[in-house]
Design a protein around this nucleic acid. Structure first.
Lengths: 127, 127
DNA sequence: TCAACATATGTTTAACTGTTCATATGTATA
DNA sequence: TATACATATGAACAGTTAAACATATGTTGA
């Protein structure tokens, strides 16, 4: 699009170029601005964690409360094993934190990003 | 935990109850607040779409520009077919919109939620 | 130290998903 | 209207993943 190279101040330089060349320029400049593949890979991995209904339910149940494994299992009618496996994934993605109290381990959302991401997604879904 | 039922305003009612009963109350009140399963399912489905590195790359490449299928394929070194398949998924999730111009079809992000969700995720990843 | 409870982990299996290849549809122009 | 270009779609295959089951680890209190 015209806008793009105008923004880069290359109006004159682009003026004499063929349309295909101009598009190549755009493509090249996007490529330069694009974050490293590794970061985009990590980003996808992050969303993948949110992309399972069991994990979303678990995350949502902790939206305003900390809960122990058993609570979650009862709440969502899941096996203890299943919950534990999912919590492991949530832990390693830094989406939840936990603390021990006696025999129980209480899990909660790790930071505000988690809440923010879920909220944003919710807005999109509820449209 | 005390904090939790205090927050729900049940301090007095809970005062005489056994710890296990109190937890059951908490679990029950969370269940009531939890959005319907269907909505949480849709939410997970939404994040699932973000949860693939190819799709994230495609979305990111459109962060500030509209692009046609061929541009994206060249830019990301992907087959035309692969890009087209992914765009179909992005379309049906309402993450991208498109317009036709001659033989080409230009795709762009559908709304600000998409940018917001990606940005939030990015912040989390970059920590 | 031994039950009993709470949580974690390893393994297997069934279901899902992204890519590729082949082909179809749609659009413009000579 | 025939040809080339741009995009979409269908089917098959390979890799991934969540759940279930069995079992292990960790913690408390008698």
């Amino acid at each position: 699009m015209a806008e793009d190279y105008r923004r880069t101040g290359e109006t004159e330089a682009s003026a004499g170029k063929a349309v295909s060349e101009v598009r190549e320029d755009i493509v090249r400049s996007i490529l330069e601005q694009q974050p490293d593949d590794e970061i985009l890979y990590d980003l996808a991995e992050l969303f993948k964690v949110f992309g399972d209904s069991t994990r979303i339910k678990i995350l949502y149940s902790m939206f305003e409360n900390e809960l122990c494994v058993n609570d979650i299992a009862k709440l969502l009618n899941l096996s203890q094993s299943s919950v534990s496996h999912q919590l492991r994934i949530l832990k390693s993605s830094k989406l939840v934190k936990f603390r021990r109290e006696g025999k129980s381990i209480y899990y909660s959302l790790d930071d505000e990003h988690v809440r923010a991401i879920i909220s944003m997604g919710m807005e999109h879904v509820e449209e």
